[in-house]
Design a protein around this nucleic acid. Structure first.
Lengths: 213, 213, 213, 213
DNA sequence: TATGAATGAGTGTTCATTCAT
DNA sequence: GATGAATGAACACTCATTCAT
């Protein structure tokens, strides 16, 4: 079994988008500098323009890719299992990862939400629909089977995504806060993202469980 | 003859900070322009510098005020009642409001989280501690009384704050999405912020309820 | 009679437009650099933007002023006399000057003509109408009085303006040509602009004279 | 076996120069983009460099060709007839055409004049001499024969060339002006280039006619 | 205290040119 | 010969900040 010759002949455009994902995640659209995007990708600034276009085009490429990958990962994971509770577990698990693609998705989406989606391209909209759909299906299935109680699907979505994106993204703030106020912070605040996912799973499943016999 | 009690204690600095709250909430730190801050406050740009200082100083003033007010509102509301379930209700209720001070708090904090709190002043840290404390106390009290089960306090905090800030801030995105994909969106996605608060209350209380008799 | 305290308190904007007239006349719109415009005016580039606007706005200000002055000079000179032949003389005399305002008018207008007036602002159009009107009136008057024969006014206009703008503007080329081909060039090619004006006057008056007794 | 007489002697370089003539005529040297020159010629940008050289080399090739053709056309037309008045007619007729080669000659030369011939290559100088010579000969011949009066040859040259280049090139401006100020413009302003040539012929011959018996 | 004007240091973008294939 | 890709050097324009009044 070969480890995959992946990213062996990544095109220049791919290299740029990869590097830009990191920069935009870190600095935001307005805070990122085109010079920085180019430097991070190891290409000349003019090459960036030649390959992709202006700053906005690079951003769109980044957000499109990040959201598409997120939706792909979620849909694939959810589709792998039949049981609706397991679907929820997997859905949450994807969002709990603060590595790879997800490392960029959280900060980018938080900022997009904050600015009313001013820079969200059309393509992004569709991907968000896929995410919503994957969760909604699981919830409706569980409701039909009597496992879950009827709830506002979208609010459950907000809860999962909101809590996990917030938790993973605010790590630097937590660390700073803990330094200043060690009396308030304890090990509860510094569980791994995987553990955070498990906690959220536990809370969410309890929240939607159908306790009526 | 008194000069009129006009602008009683709305100093120029206050006017500037109020206007800046709106601009920073809308555009973010990097996206806001000093010209815009001055124009929004109806003062000359040099006056802004004279009264408060540079862009960063204005931002710090804004975030300090917004967080202080949020913590004040939460603490006051929670302190008014004794019952721990009611404390939770009130805590959530504050965050569910997307008006007044809260209108600025959500986008500003989402962006701060996204950027690792790069621009958070020291003062902000303390206010966040007060918020955490108010919720934690209620949870611990409920746990002691057997009403709530033991949970990761911080994760519950993330859930409440994350879901409500996400819901209230992403309204423009939902509207756009709904226009493009009417088949996915329904009235569940467009409940008022107050109703959203009630949904979250319901879900959270179910999530932490101690069902073991 | 005081020599006029003119240009004593020229505004910054005026200084910029004056300097820009020279640069645009010399280099053309595309050839001029904004840095150069600022340097020529002795102001910071940002001041130029603050006072007037972008490159196009500066160009419009220049062309508007240059054409307005040209039309003013022509109309004033023509209005001073009653006799139609004298009006023609004066009209030509203005265009023959390659100094002051006229030094800029010729190259700027030649380039505008060459590019189909792509950058001509609306205001310029009106000034060109005033010029046309001044000459046309004189020609029609002369025709009525039997002094001039009926001719295509506009073509006479083209002749006067074309020959004089061409002559005054192509001096550097003539000088270069004369250096390379001294056998072709003689003193006829290097008369002063005033003399050139007289030659054109002589030729034009002969061209339109009514020789029929 | 010959590879077919395809594109008989329209080499790639020729194609490029033809296309470049149009672009430079339209936009000027500074306004033209190398990308545009290549696209207009239907070749790759690097091919343009390989075939001709840098932007300046392309421009020189264009101006050299355009001036050479103009001089060729003028000299051939003038040489075809003996009578000096007819020579003048033909000289003017060439310049009156706003088609083919002449379509490029007028705007290119107007801009060159405006910029003091900054980009004129040596070769261009010689061609201009040929033009001057052709007209001068006709004028001197007419003067000797008593048909024309003594005039400044060069000024007559300026008149002919100036009026015709100005008229043909400023058509777009006339059209725009006429739209805005229909009261000033009439059919006199919109005669064909051929008619304009006849008008100029009429005026010039009247201007230089020897009326002394 | 308030402000119009001025400015140094960026900041996104373009362009002529070169290079590897 | 021909071309897609790459790039250094400009270039137009912006922005946070300061200063004279």
């Amino acid at each position: 079994m070969h480890i995959a010759a992946k990213s062996q002949h990544d095109t220049t455009a791919d290299t740029i988008i990869d590097a830009a994902s990191e920069v935009f995640a870190d600095k935001g659209y307005e805070g990122a500098r085109v010079d920085e995007l180019a430097r991070a990708a190891g290409v000349n600034k003019a090459t960036l323009y030649y390959q992709i276009g202006d700053k906005e085009a690079v951003y769109h490429a980044v957000i499109t890719r990040v959201l598409a990958r997120t939706a792909d990962e979620v849909c694939a994971a959810v589709a792998e299992v039949d049981e609706c509770e397991e679907k929820i577990r997997r859905f949450i698990n994807i969002f709990a990862r603060n590595a790879g693609n997800m490392r960029y998705a959280a900060p980018i989406m938080l900022r997009e939400v904050a600015s009313g989606g001013r820079n969200l391209p059309e393509s992004a909209i569709a991907e968000m629909g896929r995410l919503l759909g994957a969760l909604g299906e699981a919830l409706r299935e569980g409701e039909r089977s009597g496992l879950f109680r009827p709830v506002n699907e979208f609010m459950v979505h907000m809860m999962i995504v909101g809590s996990l994106m917030l938790y993973s993204a605010n790590e630097p703030i937590r660390r700073r806060n803990a330094e200043r106020h060690p009396e308030i912070y304890n090990e509860q605040h510094f569980i791994s993202n995987e553990e955070a996912g498990e906690q959220v799973t536990d809370l969410v499943l309890a929240a939607i469980a159908n306790n009526k016999q």
